[in-house]
Design a protein around this nucleic acid. Structure first.
Lengths: 156, 156
DNA sequence: AGTGAAAATTGGACGTA
DNA sequence: TACGTCCAATTTTCACT
């Protein structure tokens, strides 16, 4: 893995904040030439350190007013493959993590209403044969929700 | 809230995928004029439907190899304010949600190693006076992790 | 690698329908 | 609101340090 110097870290911080600012603005903030900024960004993209440039959409604008975390459990290991397939295909599922502890997987799900959530649970999750337990945590409010990776202490 | 037509939804889908493609590319994919694309994006940004344009950084590139979800509980309601302040200030915390159920808040946290996680728990979470219970789910792998909002069924 | 300036591409503003 | 044109701004390339 390519290592990051201080200029890279500053650049990544600024691009995580806003990837549409002109190279000239980045150049001024960091203190290197515009063409250097351009080279650096190219390199960071090519090496995969920057995985992409994405517009973020306000979920409420799309009518998605309900955020929930769902923990799912089963005992038969054959369940996993079918479960993951369904989950990956569902646009309601933002995240699916395999976690330690009493549960097998933790899902982050965005839907419109509680009715949609009910439908999701019955049609997508419990419809998978072998799923034995679920626990749903409904989000009342989100005090923090960021995608920004902290770049203070980089590996040497 | 401004309503979205089909052109908006197509545009948002494409920009969620990659916000750096030229307007000409978007114009061709959607089938409207370049200047229309430009107008639409401007409007979507002004109305807050697009909340921003952000570069995504691969966490591993920053040495963040451990993802965990931490549930936190307390009984004294005065704890919340202090807790949220610490959590918002911590670069390790990606998300903090107020949730229903046996716990008060659910955190999504990214750190380098288990040692960093241990330090985070003792110095940031348990250091808050009044925090009584925590449960940590360590992520072994993530089958899905997206930020894309589904735009199939828009509100009328 | 970094720089500055030229060349190519792109985005933003305006007038018209 | 959508369109096309024009001009300004921005990105990209390149020869040099």
């Amino acid at each position: 893995m390519a290592k990051l110097d201080d200029t890279d870290r500053q650049l990544l911080m600024l691009l995580q904040e806003d990837d549409r600012q002109p190279l000239a603005a980045l150049s001024e903030k960091i203190g290197v030439a515009v063409s250097t900024i351009n080279d650096r960004i190219k390199r960071l993209v090519r090496s995969g350190i920057i995985s992409g440039f994405h517009a973020h959409v306000a979920p409420e604008a799309a009518g998605l007013n309900l955020l929930a975390f769902i923990m799912v459990g089963w005992s038969n290991p054959k369940v996993e493959a079918i479960f993951l397939e369904k989950v990956k295909a569902s646009p309601d599922v933002l995240e699916c993590h395999h976690v330690t502890g009493a549960w097998n997987h933790l899902l982050k799900v965005r839907v419109g209403t509680t009715r949609d959530l009910e439908r999701f649970l019955s049609e997508t999750i419990k419809a998978v044969d072998g799923v034995e337990r679920t626990e749903t945590l409904i989000t009342l409010s989100s005090a923090k929700e960021t995608w920004k990776v902290s770049l203070e202490a980089a590996p040497s």
